[in-house]
Design a protein around this nucleic acid. Structure first.
Length: 282
DNA sequence: CATGCCCCCTGCACGC
DNA sequence: TGCGTGCAGGGGGCAT
């Protein structure tokens, strides 16, 4: 599923192709994604120009004329495909179709239907149920060693689970949390509060997490987002190629750290796979 | 409040 | 060509 870098890549692609364009026709082919789509969504989208494309955590915030916001979450398998002309027969899992002025065509495809969409007044966006409890953006200035320490103070859950908690920091998912903890040299099994250091320390563990999070996300965004089998970018396959991970998906393979002879292990935490190096990560 | 479990859905890889 | 099992990047609801 798309995590923050993939959603950012989709946002940038949509912006490049759809900003300033008008939706001349919209069609909902399946109204039941994760939940029901907003009633009359197709009618409400029709005729509106797209005036901004933003992202908050893993949500696409698509601003439309008339102070209306189309809020889209890609879930596990959601993707947008663009084509210059109407491709004809929609795909089996193309649930929402848009026709743009100038002939462009947009399909929202979601095999597992874990995606979600809503239409909200711009004024009420910040208080939207899906956005109001989100923590800071990991690439923003406000997220720092100190704010992370405050968020993790007293948390008894695992460090892995804590970083997946969108209220702690917003936008990280299973793959990147594994990669971040590997780079930060921290065990995913640690109780979250144990990385909160004493004040005044120069290299606290929270600082390492913050620094590695930024590094991993920036690299992934630069690479155009990572690609797994059910993620496709907005411009077809152009610019998308498999990303190489240090630990994710590498169970039993040798750790790539210099002089480390350990093998990557896989464990299950909160029902999801965690990959880590038992030697490098403590 | 915090935490953990279960579920939504479909497709694919794997072993038999 | 088959079948059953486990697994997949998210998040919300519910029980404890």
């Amino acid at each position: 599923m798309p995590e923050l870098p993939e959603v950012e890549t989709v946002r940038a692609g949509l912006e490049r192709h759809l900003l300033g364009r008008r939706i001349v026709k919209a069609q909902v082919r399946r109204p039941d994604l994760r939940g029901p789509l907003p009633p009359r969504m197709a009618e409400d989208l029709t005729g509106r120009k797209i005036v901004a494309l933003e992202r908050r955590a893993k949500y696409l915030v698509i601003r439309l004329e008339g102070e209306l916001v189309w809020l889209v979450h890609l879930g596990m398998t959601g993707r947008f495909t663009l084509s210059p002309t109407d491709p004809g027969d929609p795909g089996k899992h193309d649930h929402v179709l848009l026709w743009m002025d100038g002939g462009g065509h947009v399909a929202f495809n979601d095999v597992r239907r874990f995606g979600s969409m809503d239409l909200v007044a711009a004024q009420t966006l910040a208080s939207h149920k899906s956005l109001r409890d989100l923590g800071p953006e990991p690439l923003s200035e406000e997220w720092c060693s100190q704010s992370l320490a405050i968020a993790l103070e007293g948390k008894r859950t695992s460090l892995k689970s804590a970083l997946l908690d969108q209220r702690v920091v917003a936008g990280l998912g299973n793959i990147y949390v594994c990669e971040i903890l590997n780079r930060a040299g921290l065990s995913p099994r640690r109780s979250a509060h144990t990385i909160v250091g004493k004040e005044g320390r120069s290299t606290t563990r929270t600082a390492r997490v913050v620094a590695q999070t930024r590094a991993v996300l920036k690299e992934a965004i630069a690479a155009g987002g990572s690609t797994l089998k059910d993620f496709a970018g907005v411009e077809g396959d152009l610019g998308y190629f498999p990303h190489s991970f240090a630990v994710y998906g590498r169970e039993g393979a040798p750790c790539r750290a210099a002089h480390c002879e350990a093998l990557i292990e896989r464990i299950v935490q909160s029902g999801r796979s965690t990959f880590f190096c038992p030697s490098c990560q403590r």
